[in-house]
Design a protein around this nucleic acid. Structure first.
Lengths: 200, 200, 200, 200
DNA sequence: TCCTAAGCGAGACGGTACGTCTTGTCTTCCA
DNA sequence: TGGAAGACAAGACGTACCGTCTCGCTTAGGA
């Protein structure tokens, strides 16, 4: 069979599975979903499911990965390119992702909320780490003696961001993205002491 | 039967179960452990297990959490009480937990490492949140207008700490606790900008 | 737990499974029955099923085996004991089994009919072989030179009997057992030539 | 494409499938063979397989049965035609099949041996039944009163033959076909009593 | 001292999800 | 246009855990 035709069929099945998973998450919660549930919704046999991924987690990861990595890496390039003032433009992904999360609120809340939240966000975490790592490589000219290793800072920033994002989503994403973004970047760049004594 | 004797028996069984779980974690990883495994190691019948807790997670929570909460909250009080200078003493739990993690490296790495890491650390996260929340209640006199909500800061700090802790453990906890603690608190209090431009 | 109590519980479950299988055979035919069907009828979990037998065939065999071997070996002893005239009493099992089959017609037709018939009858075949072998050991004084080996005769007789029994059951067991028994033993003892030329 | 060419192609594919099945039987046993196995060996797509037959059993039947039926019915006709003395020539298929089985020992043992033996031999049984039925129609002039129905005798003879054949094959087909044939026909025509008291 | 109620081990059980396997259908392309 | 390739839906399989349960055994107070 022609490769392209097959590829298209496969891609369509894969997409159906992704969509089935996403549509189920709000109904039952990620943890409670079974492979059979997904197959039923997607009108797909169990064997087909396992022909495409090794399990529920794998399916989720593949979907999220492709989605996010495409989104972020594309727009991140612009941000990095347009970067003049290190302070103003640093952590460029932040606003981008807050906005994206608000636009796809259902999906994000489903992924991040409740028990399996942290697991689900593993992929986002990795992607963000890549971005922050790249950004720091530009921003921080050299690895100063006595300073924390660059990877340490990466983990610090990404960990903080993920926690804040999750919390914001769990509360309904009520403050507008721009404001959350401002708060996060202020804490990240200036530290909590500055925040505590002066306010914004 | 006398209540006290019974209580003692019960406590002993409970402790045996806790110990069985902890001893299994390094061997198979938390996720892979089954209730039967625990019962086998503890020489306990399934029914007894379920007489004491509702499942694996419950057992873990009761054990680890009580343990940690006792450890941290006790010493945290001293820290809070002795707190004169907000800068020097803030985030008092940090060094304490780094040290504790290094002392029980096997256990922590088992909990934090690999796949289910974030899930397992959920309890620690909650405990830390409580601590930071309490600390901020003292440190930050009022909720300044324009500043981030206090809970936002809590999530930020705890998220960053957990990420850094996990990363440190995954790397083998090589830098000494005191140094990691210093790096973390520097980033947290003064922000990454200070870190980037000046060094320590 | 006391052995007897457990044994009783186990025996009851086993019996329930046997009964479920037997009750299903007339409805769907042996081949079409799934393990899940049996479990549903028996109100038993899959795991319990597999704790008692290795599969559908095994369940069937265990049931049939116990049942028949008990029936035949008990009554066969009497027959052998009372045996005076080799001609009149030979192949003593024949009438016994024809009658038993008619009394439990549903069961036998279910087992013997259709596709899996021969498979199902494997156990009966073995049991009968044992009986005939024992009978020949008494009847045939010595292994005459030029004659067929005794085991050959055993296979011959049992094969013929099984075929005749199956055929009779498939036709509804209409001729009375006594008559079928007479026909079979006549053919077996005197051969088909005698049958063809003289009649009974 | 010319019809004949197509027909030839079809026939060739069919033959390839047959051959694939036969070659697999000794390796895995009939029951364990899957359609995919056959397709792999035959270098044929699944769709092609199902274009030629409805399943594994169908393929076996078409192959083995045609083969045997051709072999037996051709030579059987001669036997029936040349039949003068009912005793000497009766059960003419017997020697023929014993010889054929010995010549294709591997195949027959695969079919007859072990578990699924009787199932696989179902086809042979049917063919033999047809032959014996035909022979009896000639030999036994009329349905004598009191005698067993003709079909009863057919089942009796075929059952006995199949059992003896299987037993012989399972033992390695050691006695030469002629001898087994003699023993079988002696038992069949004269009965076991004659065998027991006089020998050959 | 015996009695009695609880904790406990043992493990059978009903259930549920898993990942694997085979079947038979269907679609697309190639020769 | 027949056949190869193989994706697919369907669904049975045997396994692994789960959480519930029933059963006796032990054991340490209160009678």
């Amino acid at each position: 069979m022609a490769e392209r035709t097959i590829d298209r069929r496969i891609a369509r099945t894969r997409a159906t599975l992704q969509h089935a998973l996403i549509s189920l998450i709000p109904k039952k919660g990620y943890e409670a979903i079974t492979v059979e549930d997904i197959c039923d919704v997607a009108n797909v046999g169990r064997s087909t499911f396992y022909a495409h991924c090794t399990g529920k987690d794998d399916l989720k990861r593949r979907g999220l990965d492709e989605h996010l990595r495409a989104l972020l890496s594309a727009r991140q390039k612009e941000a990095l390119a347009a970067q003049g003032d290190g302070r103003a433009r640093s952590l460029a992904f932040s606003l981008l992702l807050f906005e994206h999360a608000r636009d796809h609120l259902e999906l994000y809340r489903a992924l991040a909320g409740g028990r399996g939240g942290e697991v689900s966000l593993g992929s986002i975490r990795e992607i963000l780490s890549d971005l922050v790592r790249a950004e720091l490589a530009v921003t921080a000219a050299k690895n100063l003696p006595g300073a924390a290793p660059r990877e340490f800072v990466v983990q610090y920033v990404v960990g903080a961001y993920m926690a804040v994002l999750t919390w914001w989503l769990d509360r309904g994403a009520k403050p507008p993205p721009a404001e959350v973004d401002r708060m996060f970047r202020r804490l990240a760049t200036d530290g909590i002491l500055a925040h505590l004594v002066e306010g914004s």
